[in-house]
Write a protein that binds this DNA or RNA. Structure first.
Length: 255
DNA sequence: ATGCCTCCATCGTGGAGA
């Protein structure tokens, strides 16, 4: 079973690339972030023609998430129960006995800002909810654009980024709190190439210079850890014309 | 370096992203 995440930065723009990618990588489940589409504009028919069931939770201009699965999924939840949120950032569903929770974590803009406070409150609510989800669904995957670089080795220039957004002690403490729930960073279960990033700024030729951050993650529950066979970042779509600034991350589970 | 790119909303240009 393969489960993947991709921040597409506008599904309206990236749909052709998504369809190409799914044809080459027919993963069992894929969560999308930054679809930037209201639900009536979601390309459900095109994705169904490509062999995917889709659930989606979107809005105009910003945010927006989706869950695509080859077989039907059930138990869909949109956003964090009990956490009032105008922003469409979470979608969860169950497929093949695995609870899949996709998230577009808040950016946070800058430490001390209102958006940073929202990010902290959102993360606390996510953790409280996930504790219940894990109790109900021991086999759980949390994946998406976390907007957190968990360690200095996830940052191309940790000195320049020290204390900056994505790299603050507060954000990293929340990443550790998620690990404290029993979730494991699947990418780090394996030896990985140094300078492995999932996002490269559009500006400053960052991709060409491989100046990026690893902020898109796949965390697996303890009940699934033994089944993890691989976790890789697929840089290929970042080389497309008009690419997303993020690359997909793919988890492979043994049966 | 208040820069760089890309997208959205909108039709000239500002906000946001990370």
């Amino acid at each position: 079973m393969q489960i993947a995440t991709w921040n597409v930065n506008s599904l309206a723009v990236r749909l052709p690339q998504l369809l190409d990618w799914l044809q080459a990588h027919p993963v069992d489940a894929l969560v999308l972030q930054e679809t930037k589409l209201t639900d009536e504009k979601f390309p459900a028919a095109e994705l169904e023609a490509a062999g995917y069931h889709a659930s989606f939770h979107g809005q105009k201009t910003y945010n927006g998430v989706a869950l695509l699965t080859r077989s039907a999924h059930e138990g869909v939840i949109k956003n964090i129960p009990g956490f009032a949120d105008e922003q469409a950032r979470v979608i969860a569903g169950t497929v093949g006995g695995v609870r899949v929770v996709g998230g577009y974590f808040p950016n946070g803009q800058a430490p001390g800002s209102e958006k940073f406070a929202y990010k902290m409150a959102w993360l606390a609510a996510l953790e409280a909810w996930l504790q219940q989800e894990l109790a109900a669904h021991p086999k759980l995957v949390l994946l998406g654009d976390f907007n957190i670089a968990p360690e200095d080795r996830d940052v191309y220039d940790p000195v320049a980024w020290a204390g900056q957004i994505h790299c603050t002690a507060e954000e990293r403490a929340h990443f550790q709190a998620l690990q404290g729930l029993g979730l494991v960073d699947a990418f780090r279960l394996f030896e990985q190439p140094p300078k492995s990033w999932s996002w490269w700024d559009y500006r400053n030729l960052a991709f060409r210079k491989n100046q990026g951050l690893r902020i898109d993650h796949i965390l697996v529950s303890q009940a699934l850890e033994g089944q993890v066979a691989a976790c890789t970042i697929d840089k290929a779509p970042r080389k497309n014309e008009r690419p997303s600034d993020h690359a997909p991350v793919v988890l492979t589970l043994k049966d």
